[in-house]
């Protein structure tokens, strides 16, 4: 049993190295396809991260009339936190509200002059609400239309309506982008699988006479199949290591462009790859070897009927 297994492994390695050009070409094709799959999967991850980042950028700010006490605002915050669609609520005190206004004002002197003229902070406290989903903002906005909140909320109505329209559009775009990337990933995956299958098929086709000879000399189906499976395993293993080895330097080179493109968003592609390097390598090996081995098992079957 072990002798047979050892021989199959030895023949598999011999087959790989003694048909080195065939092996190199096959590995190259598997590399290209794994690279393509990695690229599409990477884009999918970046897309998902971007959409998550965009979602996180969306929030609903509610400011109350200055006479509303901060205790009351905090009470409203506690009430809203109990709503299932609410993810988090940040309370903005009146002082913080004023600081934000000063920061964003073009003419800070003018703001200071106006405050001095009024003699007191004219701004009320506020709440910055984040929803778990984009659709959740509509429900939160509806809750805030309740008369018990309406009477103390400054500037409601139209503002919510406008935000709601923008949020609905954004939600629609996000959903469509998600569906499109999913289909694109599937399409490229199918193309890659077919290309790898065909390459292995051609590699085995070129050795069909040898398979016939092995059978005529008395080799069992398993003894013929085994070395080809080992060789295919090597194709997948070498290809997946090469892809991972190529992917990291490419990402290192392109990372500054990504960082520039996603400025202000918490997206770090290189960091993600470094953090998940072993998982990515494992996935590459699993996909590369799995595809090659399954392809060879299918391809070799027809030549075993000698």
């Amino acid at each position: 049993m072990f002798v047979t297994l050892w021989r199959m492994i030895t023949f598999g390695f011999q087959n790989f190295f003694r048909n080195i050009w065939l092996s190199l070409i096959t590995v190259l094709i598997v590399v290209l396809n794994l690279f393509l799959m990695s690229l599409v999967s990477g884009l999918n991850v970046v897309g998902q991260q971007t959409l998550t980042a965009v979602r996180q950028k969306v929030d609903l700010s509610v400011y109350f009339i200055p006479t509303t006490s901060e205790q009351r605002v905090d009470q409203i915050r506690q009430e809203l936190l109990r709503k299932p669609e609410v993810q988090s609520i940040r309370l903005i005190t009146r002082a913080e509200h004023l600081q934000e206004l000063k920061k964003s004002a073009v003419d800070k002197g003018l703001v200071d002059a106006a405050i001095d003229a009024l003699g007191d902070n004219p701004l009320g406290a506020g709440l910055v609400i984040t929803s778990k989903t984009l659709d959740g903002y509509g429900a939160i906005a509806n809750t805030l239309k309740d008369p018990k909140y309406q009477s103390i909320i400054e500037d409601t109505g139209n503002n919510f309506q406008t935000n709601q329209t923008v949020i609905s559009r954004l939600s629609l775009i996000v959903n469509r982008v998600q569906v499109a990337t999913l289909w694109l990933t599937l399409l490229f995956a199918v193309i890659a699988i077919l290309m790898v299958f065909n390459t292995i098929r051609v590699a085995i086709y070129s050795q069909r006479e040898e398979i016939g000879i092995m059978k005529l000399v008395g080799a069992s189906d398993a003894f013929v199949r085994g070395p080809f499976v080992i060789t295919s395993l090597l194709y997948g293993l070498v290809a997946s290591i090469l892809v991972t080895a190529v992917l990291v330097p490419i990402l290192s080179l392109t990372n500054p462009f990504f960082a520039q493109f996603f400025a202000g968003y918490d997206i770090n592609v290189l960091g993600y790859v470094r953090e998940h390097l072993w998982t990515i390598l494992g996935l590459e090996v699993a996909v590369g070897c799995g595809l090659s081995v399954i392809s060879s098992l299918f391809a070799i079957g027809r030549y075993l009927r000698v």
């Binding site: 011999q14 087959n15 003694r18 048909n19 006479e209 040898e210 016939g212 000879i213 092995m214 005529l216």
Partner: peptide, 8 residues
């Protein structure tokens, strides 16, 4: 036609 394995 002999049928020898060419890579062996």
């Amino acid at each position: 036609d002999f049928k020898l394995l060419p890579k062996k």
